[in-house]
């Protein structure tokens, strides 16, 4: 059984087709990259999987369950986590509070309105451990808005991990990270738990070719080709459209 599967997903905005019969399958523990030129429909596909968008036709399966009709938060509760291309954090909260909130939500504690947060020590400890694992222990009690950009990218991943996903969607995790901070980020991505299936969109080809064990190339909403990294790297069609093209931003 695949961790994540999309079956013949179609989505159009008027005449603009953004997903054209997209079928993807991620076995458990997959490291699957989704690449393609700008406007290929990569983020749209992520949004169809998370439920931010509804497909016109087709379905999304999570661990064998059809989740096409579920709301986004219900999909998260079933083990679908994601990060965002543009930092989507809680600027005034600290990383410790942010991760604790995520864990409380996962453990169905977020409705507790009369018990002090400090009483939920296990959630707080787990949040702090998690931040430590991505190298944010020292920044745990600073307001998120005061964190360096690279640290905020790490917090993006930490928050997604806090909800204990079985499938993790990383939307350009390295976007905008300066060279000096990218090593820490690469290390965290390399160290993601093996049993989590990861689907990631990335423009940084170093990241794609060092972590992906399979790659899907998306062009104009449709799958152009799919395969292991060396096959994709040598595919003349891919080189023409994407890798060898003058522009891939």
């Amino acid at each position: 059984m695949n961790s994540l599967e999309t079956r013949n997903l179609n989505k159009a905005f008027g005449k603009l087709v953004v997903a054209d019969n997209v079928s993807l399958a991620l076995p458990q523990g997959a490291r699957h990259a989704l690449i393609g030129p700008n406007g290929a429909g990569k983020t749209t596909l992520i949004n169809l999987i998370t439920g931010a968008l509804r497909p016109d036709t087709g379905s999304v399966q999570l661990n064998g369950e059809d989740i096409t009709s579920l709301l986004p938060d219900a999909r998260v509760k079933r083990g679908l986590g994601r990060t965002f291309q543009i930092n989507t954090l809680f600027p005034q909260l600290t990383p410790l509070e942010s991760a604790t909130m995520a864990i409380c939500e996962r453990d169905a504690l977020s409705g507790h309105w009369l018990s002090p947060l400090a009483k939920h020590g296990a959630a707080i400890d787990e949040a702090y451990d998690l931040l430590g694992r991505v190298g944010l222990a020292d920044a745990a009690t600073k307001p998120t808005r005061d964190l360096a950009y690279g640290q905020q990218r790490l917090l993006e991943i930490a928050l997604a991990l806090a909800s204990s996903p079985k499938v993790l969607l990383l939307d350009e995790p390295a976007a905008g990270v300066p060279k000096s901070e990218s090593a820490a980020l690469f290390e965290v991505i390399a160290g993601l738990p093996e049993d989590i299936s990861v689907l990631f969109i990335e423009h940084d080809m170093n990241l794609v070719f060092s972590f992906a064990t399979s790659i899907t190339v998306l062009v104009q909403g449709a799958i152009l080709t799919e395969g292991p990294p060396d096959q994709i790297a040598h595919d003349p069609q891919v080189r023409e459209i994407y890798l060898g093209g003058a522009h891939h931003g």
């Binding site: 986004p72 219900a74 998260v76 994601r82 600027p91 005034q92 909260l93 997604a160 806090a162």
Partner: peptide, 12 residues
Amino acid sequence: ENPVRTTALGAP
């Protein structure tokens, strides 16, 4: 602070 993120963390 960010309702999009809380949804992505499973919060109703």
